[in-house]
Design a protein around this nucleic acid. Structure first.
Lengths: 348, 348
DNA sequence: AGCAGCAGTTTAATGGTTTCCATAAATGTC
DNA sequence: GACATTTATGGAAACCATTAAACTGCTGCT
């Protein structure tokens, strides 16, 4: 491995001269500069970022902590962040929490130990109002941008999120306008702000339409296709009278719809199903899903912008980006009577 | 930020004592060790990996260079590699080539500059027999594992790949057994070994069945859904007499099938369509796709194993993992006459 | 003479670890 | 019991690759 001193020895100058020449500092003659650069290239010199980082106290490294790549939304988000970071000369360390707080903590600590210049965090949401790592991040003044909504334990941080409240509202409104009066809601983990906001949007849209929010129509599903499938089974067993299902994300919607289709329930003729996110899944799903498009690329770009603000010492404002309704084949006018009810009576 | 010297000053001992104590070196008494550890925890000490890396000449860092996360197969592969690496105490730097050789080169160089302990590379395949960066990697003896097949320009490297030849063969055989005689092949970029192998498997299966390989049935698509869609349009325009379509991956298959379905072509009654990879897309696609399951998790684990071998100074053997046929709804017995032909005559 | 500017060099610092050395206690030897 | 030898414990200096800051001659200008 070639080092500065090797070049210096070979050229018969001091290490500093080489260092300055390669970095185009002013007090080296142009002749020397070109000579050093040529020599460096010829010898295959690659600067050691490790040493540079130690000396300069900056690593040009970001840490990116996400639940996993199982959710396709994150794949796009990571792509966007990575893309902008790369342009700016930053590299990105990837870490998975797998929705596990301990795991999240070890990831963050490792990244701190690597002296990352900043952290992008998709937090594992908890009900507690405090989380030690997050407290420490604040104490250390580590630049950090929350990918998603803040919660009490991370309220002090900069963040970038989808306006899930409005988005949930728009989606429910869409179903209401189609004539649905009994709309089921499949929620995600209760501690997550995105579930809460999307639910609140749903609630408000119903209220606005003069419809009651019925506890029997609220299901706690989760975030995976399996969770959606389970919820579907439960709805069938209960003989729910819903004519439409609003799922907290595309995966849950797909898992739910899959079960219904297997029971020969027709979508959207018998029941409407809508998702959230506009992942590739929703586009190519058996019945293309009506959904809200999460502005994945814009979220990533905005997150990097906020990070740059933090690095400059400014306090970026919280950003909320709007999602767009994407109407596909899975939503339509309600049937005369709920199909799930019929399914139940058929069985008994 | 707390450093060793701060702890040393506070405890009234030398830096070395603290360093050794924290690392459980033998020549420090247990009493001192616990005292130092307590103090370190209390003061919130986080070791500086940058400095450790500089001194120890090892960073516990892997570089992972992939085309992008647009292909869901890579999301799983990255997850698997990351998972094993994390357990072993390594962190992972992620870089995207976007199928661009220059971009690939800058990614690799950056990672080299960061003194990564090893590289996982999903190469941008080229027809040239040499690529400078890869030559340099060899010269520097950087531990590197190719994710996928080797090509002439990277034949010297360790690699981990799916046995695409056999897999392609199995898939075509499946269609032949269903009774298909006119099977179209939608290839990916010609320079890629995976296209070549899957095609070769297709060719051999046809030969074995006594069927001819007809140039008119070979299409050069690409790797995205859009590429698949274009190929479908071309097939329709040409009035192809194919009764089955074997696509080089799930995305191409989905894009192609989507166009056909829009033309009211029924899958699999009118035409069979099979993909490759068993991504989530194939499972939830409008017509669940028959496909080959790429052992994504095992590929990742095998790649990390090879890397560990390299780090120990051994030369790992090349690994080829077998894919499994996953039969879903998109493949069936052929129709009496090709539908695409009929579509064409209908139009004219 | 005094001062600015050029083209470098020397020194010190970044934070931690390896290698070698120093001290004292424990053990061994006759 | 006196001395050598070993062992336990800890410290000093060098080192990893790079860079900021201060410094050294030297030339040219006023």
């Amino acid at each position: 491995m070639v080092r500065l001193k090797d070049i210096a020895a070979r050229a018969g100058v001091s290490i500093m001269t080489v260092s300055k020449a390669l970095r185009d500092e002013p007090d080296v003659s142009d002749a020397t500069k070109t000579r050093m650069k040529l020599l460096a290239r010829e010898m295959g010199y690659v600067p050691d970022s490790t040493a540079q980082g130690l000396r300069n106290r900056t690593t040009k490294l970001f840490g990116l902590v996400i639940p996993s790549l199982a959710n396709p939304i994150f794949a796009r988000l990571v792509l966007a962040i990575q893309e902008r970071a790369h342009e700016l000369g930053y590299d990105v360390l990837l870490g998975y929490t797998l929705h596990n707080p301990e795991r999240e903590e070890t990831c963050i600590r490792r990244f701190l130990s690597r002296r990352v210049d900043g952290l992008f965090l998709s937090p594992v949401y908890r009900l507690e109002t405090e989380a030690r790592v997050y407290q420490e991040l604040l104490a250390r003044k580590t630049p950090a941008v929350i990918l998603g909504h803040t919660a009490p334990f991370c309220s002090q941080f900069a963040n970038v999120a989808t306006d899930d409240l409005t988005a949930g509202h728009v989606l429910t409104q869409h179903l209401v306008q189609l004539g649905h009066k009994r709309i089921a809601f499949l929620g995600g983990p209760p501690a997550t702000p995105w579930t809460r906001e999307r639910f609140e949007g749903y609630r408000r849209a119903l209220r606005q339409a003069g419809l009651e929010v019925d506890e029997k129509l609220i299901f706690q599903a989760g975030r995976t296709a399996e969770d959606g499938a389970k919820a579907a089974v439960q709805m069938i067993n209960e003989g729910s009278d819903a004519t439409a299902i609003q799922a907290v994300n595309d995966l849950v919607a797909a898992g739910c719809a899959e079960v219904l289709l297997r029971q020969s329930v027709k979508i959207p003729e018998d029941i409407s199903v809508v998702g959230f996110g506009n992942s590739m899944l929703s586009e190519y799903f058996r019945v293309p899903l009506t959904t809200m498009n999460q502005p994945k690329h814009r979220l990533g770009a905005a997150a990097v912008d906020s990070m740059l603000q933090l690095l400059r010492g400014n306090r970026p404002e919280a950003k909320r980006l709007t999602a767009q309704l994407v109407i596909r084949a899975s939503s339509g006018t309600p049937p005369a009577t709920s199909v799930l009810e019929r399914l139940k009576t058929l069985r008994t």
